[in-house]
Deep mutational scan, measured.
Amino acid sequence: TTTITTTNEEDARRIATEWKNKGYTVHVEKRGTTFRIEVR
């Protein structure tokens, strides 16, 4: 599992989409101002 964190919502969406397009399972969680993107 790879975890990526960013405070930028646009980055979070872009990163999540990129990983999904590669065939990975992506889970995005917002904690306060931080977005945690888990890639499996």
Rank of each mutant, 00 (worst) to 15 (best):
R36W: 15
T33N: 15
E38Q: 11
N8C: 08
R36Y: 15
K30A: 06
T1A: 11
F35Y: 14
T25Q: 12
T2N: 08
Y24H: 04
R40Q: 11
K30D: 05
T3A: 07
I4T: 03
R40H: 12
A16I: 11
K20N: 06
F35N: 01
R14L: 07
R14K: 08
T17W: 13
F35R: 01
Y24G: 02
Y24L: 04
E18Y: 15
T33C: 10
W19V: 02
D11S: 07
G32F: 04
G32I: 03
E29P: 00
Y24A: 04
V28Y: 05
V26W: 01
T3H: 08
T1D: 07
T3V: 15
E29N: 06
R36T: 14
F35C: 02
T33V: 10
I37P: 00
R13G: 06
T2E: 06
N21G: 07
E18A: 10
E9N: 04
W19C: 02
T25G: 05
T2S: 08
E38V: 15
Y24W: 06
T7P: 07
W19N: 02
T7E: 13
R14P: 00
G23C: 04
R13E: 10
V28G: 01
G23R: 02
T2L: 15
K30I: 10
A16E: 07
E10C: 08
W19M: 06
I15V: 06
E18D: 08
G23L: 02
H27T: 14
T33K: 11
K22D: 03
R36N: 10
T34Y: 13
R31S: 12
I15L: 07
T17K: 10
T1V: 15
T5V: 13
T1S: 11
V26T: 04
V26N: 00
T5N: 07
N8G: 05
R36K: 10
R31T: 13
T7A: 10
T33I: 11
N21R: 11
T6W: 03
T5D: 07
T33P: 12
T5E: 13
Y24M: 04
T7K: 09
T17E: 14
T17G: 08
E9H: 07
G32A: 05
T6L: 07
T1M: 13
I15D: 01
R13P: 01
Y24S: 02
A16M: 09
N8V: 07
E29D: 07
T17H: 09
G32D: 06
T25K: 09
V28W: 07
T33F: 11
T25P: 04
H27Q: 08
K30G: 04
T1K: 09
T1C: 13
E10P: 05
T6R: 03
R31N: 13
R31D: 14
T2A: 09
T3I: 15
T3R: 07
T17R: 12
